[in-house]
Amino acid sequence: MLITGEAHTRHVLATYEIHYNTHRSHQDRDQLPPEAQEQPAVRHDLKPRKLLRTRILGGLVNEYRYAA
């Protein structure tokens, strides 16, 4: 990623901070993000589910979740 100035740097860092604190798992927190309080409910259904990707910072970082 090519950073083009101070405003762009602040935008990139703010976007990554949101990803880091709300989505990215952390080993020392039992794979929970810092702002999560408990593990999501485990689903044991055998139906295939569609996986959705959200591109963060133009695809430099990706977040994945299952479609409802």
Rank of each mutant, 00 (worst) to 15 (best):
A67Y: 04
Y20M: 05
Y16R: 10
L46P: 05
I3D: 08
L32M: 08
R43S: 05
D45M: 01
A14Y: 05
T54E: 14
L52C: 10
E17D: 14
I3P: 00
A7L: 01
I56G: 02
L57K: 12
H11G: 02
H26E: 13
P34Y: 02
L60A: 07
R43P: 00
Q39L: 04
L51A: 10
L32G: 04
T15W: 00
L52S: 06
H44S: 03
I56C: 06
L51M: 11
K50F: 00
M1P: 14
T15D: 07
L46C: 10
E63K: 15
R65L: 14
A7T: 13
A68N: 07
M1Y: 12
Y66A: 06
L60W: 12
Y20E: 07
Q27R: 09
T4G: 08
H19S: 10
E17N: 15
A7N: 09
R55V: 08
N21Q: 09
Q39Y: 07
H11V: 12
G58D: 02
L52I: 11
L60I: 07
S25Y: 10
E17V: 08
P34W: 03
A14F: 01
D45E: 12
G58C: 00
I56V: 14
H44T: 10
A67E: 14
K50R: 08
I18M: 08
D45R: 04
T15K: 01
H11I: 10
L60K: 09
Y16Q: 02
H11C: 08
T9A: 11
H44M: 11
H26G: 01
K47W: 11
R24W: 13
Y20L: 10
A14V: 01
Y66L: 13
V42C: 06
N62D: 15
M1F: 07
E17M: 07
Y66K: 09
Y66H: 14
A67V: 00
R24S: 12
